[in-house]
């Protein structure tokens, strides 16, 4: 494999819902790359197109009326337009996915072990017994206590954290090169959240997998990700290395998201700042900058759609840096300026 070739290269991904009246663009020209062993955070509020992007990469958006265009290259191989039959061999084996709610993501009538065995046997010709051995080993590596007995238990008999570990074990069962984790910690307790994130961070060392982590929680991103892509209303707002983006956010939306994380140290603010208003639905997206109606800095030039420009280490879809009014560097609490 070409060393320069990224693991996943998404170019101009566009997902359109062709309705009876007018077409609605759910994801609008999203481009990013993810490398092996890297964790890329995909951040945005609900409805910003994060999950749709993930499902589009997996080729799982085949409902009538949904049109996926653009390019998704996985190890140089184009996935958009690939037949479902061919995609089936990619799914689970090369790209695996973890879902938000581990309670509903397992089929209730089969044991956890059975379902992981099934995932292994879908891609490899091995015996039931060997599959089970691997399942138990995986569960063990995911920190599931007493893995042999747990494998024989039904989803509803396990706690949320254990279920999510089992889910990750299932996703890793065929050693995928890329793991897409769609809000893997949202449905879990805070303490369990931290454990699961540790697990995900450990994956790149232990398995060398790339991870696409979808979340709405900037705190999770700060703890876990190497690179970040901020989506707003189906469009890219800002992207870049996590460290740079956290230190000097260029998009007002990124700043607003960062402001809504409670500080770890120092005096607690009486009230966390929140972003006024709600994100526009994809059908009612303004023709200019989608964030303009909620932006403190909105002005005349925001009525045209801002292009993605390179600024410092990031790329940002905002006119402020080019107009010479770049946002000031952020001083995060706990850091000395």
């Amino acid at each position: 494999m070409d060393a320069d070739m990224p693991l996943l290269d998404v170019r101009d991904l566009r997902v359109t819902l062709t309705g009876s009246e007018k077409d609605i663009t759910l994801v609008d020209s999203v481009s990013f790359t993810a490398g092996a062993g890297e964790i890329l955070g995909l951040v945005g509020e609900s409805g910003s197109g994060k999950s749709v992007t993930a499902l589009a990469i997996m080729g799982l958006l085949d409902m009538p009326g949904l049109v996926v265009s653009g390019s998704v290259r996985f190890r140089g191989r184009e996935l958009v337009g690939l037949s479902q039959r061919a995609l089936r061999h990619v799914r689970g084996r090369e790209i695996a996915m973890i879902f938000q709610d581990p309670m509903t993501a397992f089929t209730p009538v089969y044991t956890i072990g059975w379902q992981i065995d099934e995932a292994i046997r879908a891609h490899e010709k091995i015996s039931r017994r060997d599959a089970r051995t691997r399942t138990v080993k995986l569960l063990n590596e995911m920190g599931v206590p007493d893995p042999e007995r747990t494998a024989n238990r039904y989803p509803h008999q396990l706690s949320g954290g254990l279920r999510q570990r089992a889910m990750i074990a299932m996703a890793l069962s065929c050693n995928p090169a890329l793991l897409i984790a769609d809000e893997p910690t949202t449905a879990l307790d805070v303490t369990v959240q931290a454990q699961i994130l540790d697990l995900l961070r450990g994956l790149r060392h232990d398995y060398g997998s790339g991870v696409l982590l979808i979340t709405h929680d900037m705190g999770v991103v700060a703890e876990t990700c190497d690179d970040v892509l901020v989506l707003y209303s189906g469009r890219m707002a800002e992207t870049g290395p996590a460290a740079a983006l956290f230190a000097r956010p260029a998009h007002p939306y990124t700043t607003a998201l960062l402001d809504s994380i409670p500080p770890l140290t120092g005096p607690r603010p009486a009230r966390l700042p929140s972003i006024a208003g709600v994100p526009p639905s994809p059908a009612a997206r303004p023709s200019g900058c989608a964030f303009a109606p909620r932006c403190h800095y909105a002005h005349a030039s925001c009525t045209t759609k801002p292009p993605l420009i390179v600024w410092e280490e990031q790329e940002v879809a905002c006119v402020l840096p080019t107009e010479g009014h770049a946002l000031p560097p952020r001083i995060t609490a706990g850091e000395t300026p």
């Binding site: 879902f99 993501a105 397992f106 089969y110 879908a122 891609h123």
Partner: peptide, 25 residues
């Protein structure tokens, strides 16, 4: 249901997803 999506994401054939996961439930 979510679990049907999981089954598809595992790379199972549509027939298996429908019969083994959907019909059985």
């Amino acid at each position: 249901e979510d679990f049907m999506r999981t089954a598809r994401a595992k790379g199972l054939s549509p027939l298996r997803v429908l019969l083994v996961h959907g019909l059985r439930t």
